[in-house]
């Protein structure tokens, strides 16, 4: 079987799996990294959201063969380390606002939120309500309002 090498949460990994297996299953079923969740498998719910070279992506819809050895995948498990702390400011804001209900969507929500704040900062502007309206992650428990409050708070500390 083909080998695929890339980086996950700061470590180089090599997996032996068919080219077209999507990254989500490589993470969850082969590497045992279960923070990214399955919610649709077709790039609409965003529960699996993780970072690829700093951008928010949907691993359920990325064939593992798309990854190069230098590509850096960060999942919720590796997020805090990118801020060099025990918790990323976004995770801390999530705790401060007690955002979580069942928690199933939250790893994806947090990863999407971090990428949004970075993107908006790179564009040299503040987060707007329209930016928050544009977040596509579903929360079936309906935690949307606290998510918005937490993102605004975290943006100040990032």
């Amino acid at each position: 079987m083909p080998e695929h090498t890339f980086r996950v949460n700061g470590k180089q990994v090599t997996v032996d799996v068919a080219d077209d297996v999507r990254l989500l299953w490589v993470l969850r079923d082969i590497l045992g990294i279960t923070g990214p969740k399955y919610g649709c498998g077709i790039n609409v719910c965003k529960a699996c959201t993780s970072h690829l070279n700093g951008r928010a992506v949907s691993p359920c819809s990325i064939p593992v063969s798309d990854l190069e050895p230098a590509d850096e995948v960060v999942t919720i498990e590796g997020l805090a380390a990118t801020a060099g702390a025990e918790l990323h400011p976004m995770q801390q804001a999530w705790l401060d606002h007690d955002v979580v209900q069942c928690g199933y969507c939250q790893p994806g929500q947090i990863m999407a939120a971090v990428a949004l704040v970075h993107r908006v900062a790179a564009e040299g502007r503040e987060i707007t309500e329209a930016d928050l309206d544009g977040l596509r992650n579903i929360c079936r428990c309906g935690t949307y309002a606290r998510i918005r409050a937490a993102i605004k708070a975290a943006a100040k500390n990032m």
Binding site: R28, L87, V99, V100, G103
Partner: peptide
């Protein structure tokens, strides 16, 4: 605040498939 919040935001909270 929820007692399982920290596990949930760090990806440590385990659901059946995890």
């Amino acid at each position: 605040s929820r007692i399982d919040a920290r596990d949930a935001v760090t990806g440590r909270k385990k659901f059946a498939m995890d």
